[in-house]
Amino acid sequence: MKAYCKLFACSVLYFVFNGTNSYAQQSSKLSDPEIASVAVTANQIDIDAAKLAKEKSKDQDIIKFAETMINDHQAVINQAVALVKKLNVTPKDNATSQKMSADAANTKKILQSKSGKDFNKAYIDNEVAYHKAVIDAVQNVLIPQAQNAELKQLLQDIMPALKTHLEHAEMIQKNFQ
């Protein structure tokens, strides 16, 4: 796996598990509004990567996968938005979601610099790494830390989709070994 994919995956895991000292958070534990913001951000990041893939790739497997990522992650965002409206909660931007966005922007620059088969491989490698990191974060941090039962249930409900995305990405990744 390319170094920048590992770096991005590690930074997702690091900042979800530990928060960031530079923002002097009192606790690394995330509140429900912060968890909602992290969940929406994580989905939006994959939508943005998929839109780039649809622009740059000519490989049908990559394009179809990217379309699925856009549709599925938007469906998750819609579910999350509906829930926070129902609970009258405002997603709270936080150090974790900000760092995720910053790292995603760096990854996007790297992907934009590539083309052809190099881009296809880089994109799908990143998708595998990213989904592994998000699955780990949701399973081991967001779900245990969520206080509201409906938020916890939503996070549990999205796990099968995340795992299927990972399995699908790994299947496509074999074509670019």
Partner: peptide
């Protein structure tokens, strides 16, 4: 009417 293997063409591992 016959034995059939099927899948979800959107999520091809299903």
């Amino acid at each position: 009417n016959k034995n059939t293997d099927y899948y979800c063409s959107i999520h091809q591992v299903m």
